[in-house]
Each structure stands twice: as structure tokens, then as C-alpha cells.
Design a binder for these strands. Structure first.
Lengths: 112, 112
DNA sequence: GCGAGTGTTCGATGAAAACCATACAGTCGC
DNA sequence: GCGACTGTATGGTTTTCATCGAACACTCGC
């Protein structure tokens, strides 16, 4: 019946929004938060699908963290996939950059 | 003594922040608001120093409007100058663009 | 199936921010 | 100076949002 390749669970697949369907205001609002910006930055420095949600060094509990990832998904910034019990992440660099040229680079290039 | 050219009042001059001294997070937060984004857009379509604060078509009272302009000033997005009883505005296009390349254009180019 | 590990959902709390109405401070024309 | 006009400051209300604790759902190894 169903193939069982790499982590095909019947868990509720996370809802994604393509960057093309994201209003500018939503994109800015998603990035205008210290925790989420930190997540994006760490994610940018990691290989795609290499980081599960729990592996990020942010000063918030699981609940808040989960919420932040939901916001990032809705803003078209992050894609998630279930891999066994964990949910691994990927920064949608190219897609997001095509929709909002320069925005991501601006957040990443900048320490100050 | 003091020259009295074009609107030299002894009113408290508005405090400005140069875009170079603005953190990315603050810039994004300033733009991530519907009213402020509207102000920036209208301002972008007007000649420098041609618009006083009251001439913007936003659905908020004077008090809130004044506050929004203060935020825009602090984010290095707007420069203000007193001209008689009114306070006229100018979008700091080049300076802001030098600090955050592409960001302003992104907000302006985009209707959706 | 049980238990550990991972993430989501729910309800409630607290802080931040937007907003308004009012009162105040300047500027200008008379 | 008086009065109209423009914007700011103050105080208080409402809304929004980040956060937590606890309960729940799912996966996996044993």
C-alpha cells in the first residue's frame, strides 16, 4: 500500500505557505522578532534538513518554540518535514529570495 | 541675533536617528505595521518636505499618528523639519537604502 | 504494549503596543 | 494679545502577542 521510505508517518503534515502567497507585511512581521530572527540565522548556517526543532539555542520553552516555527512556516520562510519522531527544517532561501529579493540577505549579513 | 529664515522656531527639534545606528530588528519592526507602511508609501510618492503630518490618509487619530511618526524617525526612515506651525516630512530614501539595501524598494514596489 | 523522546494544542498569564480623548505647547494672522 | 491651527504629551483602555505549564498525539526501540 503506502510506501514507507524516509519517515513517512501518518502524522498531520505541517501546513506550508509559499512565499509567493505571503504579503510583505507578514514577511516583515515574521522576521521582526528576536527569537524568530535567531532561528532563521541558525538555520541559514546549517545544512538543509539537518536540524530538528529542538536543536536550536533559543531561550524559550517548547510551546513557544513550536508557535514560532508555525509563524515562520506561514511566512514562507521555513519548510518542515517529519522524520521519524522529529520534525526537521529547511530555510527556503531561493523561493523566499525570489519573492523578497535582498530581505533574507539583509537579516543574515547583519550583526548590528 | 538669530536668523529667521524659513520657519526657524525655537520649538523642540525632533530627535532623529541615522539609519546607520538602527538595528535590523528595529527597522523591520517599524515597517511591520499597516499604518506606518502606509505612511512610508504615501511619503515615497510625494516631493520631499511637501507633506505635513496631518495630510496623510490613515484611519487613526492625531495622537496615534504622532506616535507613529516618532517610531519612523527612530528607525531612520523619516526626517522632519518644523515649518511654521506644521511639521513637514521627508523619506530618507538614500540613507536608509545605503544601510538596508533593497528593503525600502521591497515595501514600495509591492501592493500585495 | 510500555516508556522515552519530540513536537503540538489548549488555557491562562503578563508584557508590549496601538489607540483614543483630553489637555498642553508652539506658530501664525488678525 | 486673541483665536485658529498643528502637533506633542499624558493617562487610561483595549488589543495583540509572546510565553509558560500541562495535557495530548505520534514515533521508535525494547
Amino acid at each position: 500500500m503506502a510506501q514507507r521510505t524516509t519517515g513517512t508517518g501518518h502524522r498531520a503534515a505541517p501546513e506550508h505557505t509559499h512565499p509567493d502567497d505571503v504579503p510583505v507585511l507578514a514577511a516583515l512581521a515574521a522576521l521582526a522578532d528576536p527569537v524568530r530572527m535567531q532561528l532563521v540565522r541558525e538555520l541559514a548556517g546549517s545544512v538543509d534538513w539537518s536540524r530538528s526543532c529542538g536543536t536550536f539555542d533559543v531561550p524559550v520553552g517548547k510551546a513557544a518554540l513550536s508557535h514560532h516555527f508555525a509563524v515562520l512556516r506561514a511566512a514562507g520562510l521555513v519548510e518542515q518535514r517529519d522524520e521519524g519522531p522529529k520534525r526537521v527544517n529547511r530555510l527556503r532561501r531561493e523561493e523566499f529570495d525570489a519573492r523578497f529579493p535582498g530581505l533574507l540577505e539583509l537579516v543574515l549579513r547583519d550583526g548590528h
